[in-house]
Write a protein that binds this DNA or RNA. Structure first.
Length: 560
RNA sequence: GCGCCUGUAGCUCAGCUGGACAGAGCAACGGACUUCUAAUCCGUGGGUCGCAGGUUCGAAUCCUGCCAGGCGUACCA
């Protein structure tokens, strides 16, 4: 339940009634009721809620906003509401001050909601698929993948909280050119380890992890592929290496707190004929032509700058063709909505992909593609270029080892996806104890400590509805409750905009307000009434803090 | 060249879809622990919101043009 939302709606209704009544009685003259908002103002001095209705109506009614405001207030019926006071302020805002009881009501709602506080049903049980990370299984996960993992998983969490039925999916690019390069690189390492002359191709994978992989392989299989037909050899090496890489990717993601529901192999799309089928389908629909021996998709029809190759001259379908088949497969599985999280290096792909879906007759608006800007890594004050080819990159595992899962996830989600992210490794290490995530977790640990000691003293944590909460009347206490009240609206907004970065900011603000409260207000040892009310407040804060941390995939520690 | 993203305090970034005097965290400086965890709190300083126009009662937010950075512009993925 979202008290703020309910009150907003209520005020909106009352305002509408007032304005229409004013019109009927000839006090206001306008054609159409314009769109207006009821919001929680940033400034405390502006009341609990505020509306811009009077300002919006100014141009239609040809009256000054403040005068319109007066007229609206004259016709406003505030009976049976929390509204205590209404006034015009600034350029014509209508500010509402509510009876304090609404805040006390919030505590009861938080307590009753408990784990469900913040959840809603705007998704209405519809099916949504979130595809993210989808890293090439030719190496380990790097910082860019890590950012995608944190953002994708949090978006999935938020959608779940908003009532969607979510499937988390990882698309395994286990086909195509890169696999060829991968195979050649593996072969070179294999031969090298067995004392033969061989070199990793220039556009191959130079990372040292492949040496390790081939060492493991030799331990199992020995040198029996030394004299084998190179094609057979490469296939055996690749099969083994892909399995090993995928396993370690899974393990890293698990450590990072990310669990996928579906691991979807690109290879199966080629094998099943799905890729050829979708190409045929596009051909039938007239979106395909041949040129220079290759088969092209007319992506320019959908706003792309150039057409895109589906099948190469050598007869091999491109990554794009397979990806179309994959996305068709997604829609055919009955998802009401499909969300992709891609790195900025794929942004050129967006228009084509949506175009292809349109060409196949799907609703392209059901496909959301979130483009995530790349992570720039700094070490010793210098930019560290990341590349799988050269094997120059910090892995997700190393990141977890150095700064921890919680800090890493929090840090990645804190930045908006479309902002470039500078990640200074030295700083992250150095500041690990000052990282904002600890600030939030510390608030939670402090709360648990209070509650624990209360129990030890034989003090029961009182229920809100049985407690006189009106003794919570200091500024810090009321501010804290206001913050708790914001939470459901925030989760809803994050789900709508697919922008989870507001969650960490909220968590920091909430923790900050709690820390201020903690310094200013004692809980245990106060007179019984005050102690009881504050225990209710502290417990409610615990619930919200835990819930927001859960959404972020960050642990809420009991001790620090 | 063209397309997408970005440009807000010394640094890293928010700014709730156009609202009421531009915020936070680091960093700097000054205070606060015999009392529920000082991984904390309180206070101070710091900004022509890249630049120039435009729309609007009102612009960091929308439009146009510049400037700077990132990414893309493969029969790679």
């Amino acid at each position: 339940m979202d008290i703020v939302g309910i009150i907003q709606k209520e005020i909106e209704e009352r305002l509408k009634e007032a304005v229409l009544k004013a019109k009927d009685e000839g006090d206001l003259n306008f054609e159409e009721l314009p769109f207006f908002i009821v919001e929680v103002p940033k400034e405390k001095g502006h009341g609990d809620f505020a509306s811009n209705l009077a300002i919006i109506l100014a141009s239609q009614t040809k009256k000054p906003p403040r005068e319109i405001g007066e007229i609206i207030i004259k016709h406003l019926d505030t009976s049976n509401t929390w509204i205590k006071d209404v006034e015009i302020a600034g350029p014509g805002f209508i500010n509402f001050t509510l009876m304090r009881e609404w805040l006390y009501q919030v505590l009861e709602v938080v307590e009753r909601g408990d784990k469900k506080y913040g959840r809603s049903n705007v998704g209405n049980g519809k099916k949504v698929q979130v595809e993210f990370v989808s890293a090439n299984p030719t190496g380990l996960l790097h910082m860019g993948n890590a950012r995608g993992a944190a953002i994708g998983d949090t978006i999935a969490n938020v959608l779940e909280a908003a009532g969607w039925k979510v499937t988390r999916e990882f698309y395994i690019n286990d086909a195509g050119n890169q696999i060829e390069n991968f195979a050649k690189s593996l072969e070179a390492r294999y031969l090298q380890l067995l004392g033969k002359e061989a070199e990793v191709p220039e556009d191959g994978y130079h990372g040292e992890d492949l040496i390790e992989t081939m060492r493991n392989f030799i331990e199992l299989e020995g040198d029996k592929y030394l004299e084998a037909d190179p094609e057979v050899r490469r296939e055996a090496l690749t099969e083994y290496a892909l399995k090993e890489k995928l396993k370690s990717i899974k393990e890293s993601l698990e450590r990072f707190g990310v669990a996928f529901d579906v691991w979807f192999s690109e290879h199966t799309l080629h094998e099943s004929g799905a890729v050829n089928e979708v190409i045929e389908e596009l051909r039938k629909r007239g979106y395909v032509y041949e040129k220079d021996g290759a088969l092209w998709f007319k992506s320019t029809l959908f706003g792309d700058k150039k057409d895109e190759v589906l099948v190469r001259k050598n007869g091999m379908p491109t990554y794009f063709a397979a990806d179309i088949a994959y996305h068709k497969n997604k829609f055919d599985r009955g998802f009401d909505r499909v969300i992709n999280i891609w790195g900025a290096d794929h942004h050129g792909h967006v228009v084509r992909m949506k175009g292809a879906m349109e060409a196949l007759g799907y609703d392209k608006d059901k496909l959301d593609i979130i483009i995530m800007q790349l992570v720039r890594l700094f070490k010793d004050g210098e930019i560290l270029r990341m590349s799988k080819r050269t094997g120059q990159y910090i892995t997700l595992d190393e990141l977890i080892d150095e700064v921890g899962k919680d800090a890493a996830r929090f840090f990645f989600v804190m930045r908006a996806a479309d902002s470039h992210l500078d990640f200074d490794l030295d700083l992250a290490k150095k500041e690990s104890s000052e990282n904002p995530v600890y600030y939030v977790q510390y608030a939670h640990a402090r709360i648990i400590s209070i509650l624990r000691q209360a129990v030890e003293k034989g003090v029961e944590i009182p229920r809100a509805y049985k407690t006189d909460l009106t003794v919570l009347d200091s500024e810090v206490e009321l501010e804290l409750i206001r913050k708790l009240a914001e939470f459901p609206g925030l989760v809803k907004a994050c789900a709508e905009t697919l922008e989870p970065h507001r969650l960490p900011h909220y968590a920091i603000e909430l923790a900050g307000m709690f820390h201020s409260f903690y310094t200013e207000c004692r809980v245990l040892g106060e007179d019984e009434g005050k102690q009881a009310a504050r225990l209710v407040l502290v417990n409610a804060t615990r619930i919200v803090l835990r819930n927001v941390l859960n959404l972020l995939g960050v642990t809420a520690p009991e001790r620090m």
